[in-house]
Design a protein around this nucleic acid. Structure first.
Lengths: 330, 330
DNA sequence: CCGATGCTTGTAACCGGTTACACACGCCAT
DNA sequence: ATGGCGTGTGTAACCGGTTACAAGCATCGG
């Protein structure tokens, strides 16, 4: 029982051929005599030989690994997007190399750079890096696909159709007879939060003309949903529908409404965004975002670029679905 | 603007020194003249040089990456354990290489082998592989830490203290005056499910002597919780507490009880196991399993072994906490 | 003035694979 | 016999780093 693994040279010695023949035999090259191949395969088996992926990567300039750079994000989004990527990646024989990014831009750039030579391409979700920041963080020879990208980033990427999702929510509420809608917005720096806020205002202008839309600031966290309800009541504003920018805030809203004895959905309808699993259990009407699909499509596009044509710089849009449950019931 | 990245030789040429000096200068070796170091650093900066991690790994026999082999598991567990590992790993300057395993043992072994030369060590969760299967799947020179291990695996690993968790649940229910307890068990092949089932029987013998404990088969999925309730009622068994082997089945139990107009917790108490986020929202009394901690500790142990002493073969136990909520209210 | 010593530096081997190229061989047509 | 061709194999360069070893040079003590 050896402790160090066998190398290709060990196999060559045992099979009494050159290392070149071992390599060719094991990689299914056609110009290898059947007898030779048999000897090589037998030697490899007795030695328990497994090729050293790092060495192969170096000489082939191909690692068959994809780097994933994500900010520190909450469980549901993280596991969904990674699951989607993994599904696609393992179907194509690649691996995923994870790197969680720190908030600091310099550290983020460092994390990205440290991937050179480890991966064939990158999938990056970097809310805090703008086009410039990305340009000097990304090694020029490493193809990258952006997730949650700005429209105008000038790079291959994906984005969620936030405006359409919010518009569907607003239309649904207006169809149900609600007019006095309030939007609980996400943090101001966040791209998706910004688009949802704009989308809300646009949709209100279209579907409820004449109504002054109200926007309360939130931060995507559950507590800020409850705070928003407190604020509304303190100001004495009348409202019959609350459109939260994500599901967690919608949960906070629901808890605060229950505490204030305001009936959902009779007095006030509540909606979220994302469709986290919790939403189904609590009957929350929300907008489903196919996160896993986005991960899978990002991977597919990246690997496609690696194996065929280079990446194009356009941003693809991910469609959303309105999921109607009980918090907006008639 | 070059398309291919600069190599150490390019830097050497520009700085007018040898590659050895570049390597030494950039790696903070002490025997480099300050002037030389300055020239090298300047050259590296103008060229935008980033060392090629793959090449460095090959010559140093160190990748600073840890392979993670997991079965295809549901969201919560996956994201929690990966989060815990990531926390520990990035604090120590390593990366995580993910590989989801297929159910087939041969494919699983293949997935593990393909990590050779890519990672310095492995963290493996392989419910379908026994000691033998692991022995010939794991390359002998690759340290590995097992998660969710059998007690007697003869390898470094971690396990959840399922018996203690279930015992705490049973004690809590008995303290609340419940005696006629039913256990809804997990799938028979699963290690944790088995330990929870045994733990239930042992705890019942101790805390409720004379009572005949009932066990209904389930499969860890929500639907099987509901099915179990149906079975109990069909058999006409009396019960005042249901101890589900995990949270999802407990949710199924609760839904079925609600449908049958059986009051929780007044008529029947319900408990789960795992403490998924949903449990908090639905008020489920359950056993908290610190999944992220387990991931972090597995990584810490593996990296410790890599950098200091080799791994010892013992299995460490992860403690659980009883979390009392409303489904067992007095 | 000479050898020992310490500080820098360069040359080249090495990590473990892949593959361009050369070459040996047998066979066939000329 | 000769040249051309196809098949199978080996030699050695290469991927991009690290590092053992040798060597140049200035300084210093005897």
């Amino acid at each position: 029982m050896r402790s160090a693994s066998a190398t290709i040279r060990d196999v060559a010695r045992v099979a009494e051929v050159s290392v070149a023949s071992v390599s060719r035999a094991l990689n299914g090259h056609s110009s290898v005599h059947p007898d030779t191949r048999a000897r090589v395969v037998a030697a490899a088996k007795t030695l328990g030989y497994v090729p050293h992926a790092g060495a192969r990567s170096l000489s082939m300039a191909r690692t068959h690994a994809i780097g994933v750079v994500l900010p520190d994000l909450h469980g549901e989004f993280f596991s969904e997007i990674v699951r989607g990527m993994d599904r696609e990646v393992s179907a194509r024989g690649y691996h995923l190399l994870l790197s969680n990014m720190h908030a600091d831009a310099a550290l983020a750039a460092q994390a990205i750079r440290s991937m050179r030579g480890r991966v064939d391409g990158l999938i990056v979700m970097a809310p805090q890096l703008d086009a410039e920041g990305l340009d000097d963080a990304l090694p020029p020879d490493l193809p990258a696909v952006l997730v949650n990208a700005h429209d105008d980033i000038g790079r291959a990427g994906f984005r969620v159709d936030n405006a359409a999702g919010i518009a569907a929510v607003v239309r649904h509420l207006v169809d149900g007879g609600r007019r006095k809608l309030v939007h609980v917005a996400g943090p101001s720096g966040n791209i998706d939060a910004g688009e949802r806020r704009e989308g809300f205002l646009t949709a209100m202008a279209e579907h409820a003309p004449g109504v002054e839309p109200v926007v309360i600031e939130g931060d995507f966290r559950e507590a800020s949903g409850a705070t928003a309800v407190g604020l509304l009541r303190a100001r004495g504003l009348a409202f019959d529908g609350i459109v939260a920018a994500n599901d967690m805030m919608a949960l906070g809203v629901m808890a605060a409404l229950r505490e204030a004895d305001i009936a959902v959905p009779r007095a006030v309808a509540v909606t979220g965004f994302d469709d986290v699993p919790l939403a189904r259990y609590l009957g929350l009407t929300t907008v489903r975002v196919p996160i896993a699909d986005m991960g899978a499509r990002a991977v597919a596009r990246l690997i496609g670029a690696l194996e065929d044509a280079p990446l194009t710089d356009d941003v693809e849009t991910i469609d959303t679905d309105l999921v109607v449950r009980t918090t907006t019931g008639s």
